[in-house]
Amino acid sequence: MSQAYEISHLLAGVMLVTSFALLYQERVAAVLNAFAAQSITLALAVAWSAWSDNRPDLFITALIALTLKGIVIPVALHRTVARLGIHREVEKVVGVGVALMVGLALTGLAQALVLKVAAGMASHAREELALALAIILLGFLMMIVRRNAVTQVVGFMSMENGLILAATGARGMPLVVEVSVAFSVLISLFVFAVFVFRIRERFDTVDLEALDRMRGDRR
């Protein structure tokens, strides 16, 4: 049985590594690929818990993650990027080194927090929760260290991946919740997409700095 936990930890760990990869990628296409990798790993992790814990409803969750986040959304974003012609380097607010250091600190914080707060839980569930929290925080961090609207969308989706991983780890989360989470993600993606296109139409760029300039902000 412990082998099952080892494998699910491995998959969660791979997701965390892809989160770090998301932080240091410099090109939009690479960011999207890293995100697709993370989503596919998520689908694998969810499928593995569905199989090992004998909870067939989680297969649906895995399927949703795989099709929507692993394939449809990255492909759609790839096409958008290609159409808008923005596959150049993404401007960052802080350097890669700093972002990675902060990410490391956040991972440490997530570990320390979960190990303390969830002291009563079984150790394997605790580990998984800590990894999920670290992924969520890294997704948030990605949203604030990038200036590009597309990469912000990706950061947001990455947070969502962390949430679903946490939900899988927490036993007894009903399918309805997962479906609603998935739909909320879908809807927010649409909103983001609409915004991206509107920004593009108006400013000929998806760099958020254009928005700031429009409002007369100075940095």
């Binding site: 956040l106 914080l109 925080l137 948030f140 949203m143 604030i144 200036r147 958020l208 902000d217």
Partner: peptide, 18 residues
Amino acid sequence: TIRRYLVLMFVTLVILLS
């Protein structure tokens, strides 16, 4: 800016978690 609002939220979250 939007990003700064996000930073505010993020910093608050991290402080609370700490």
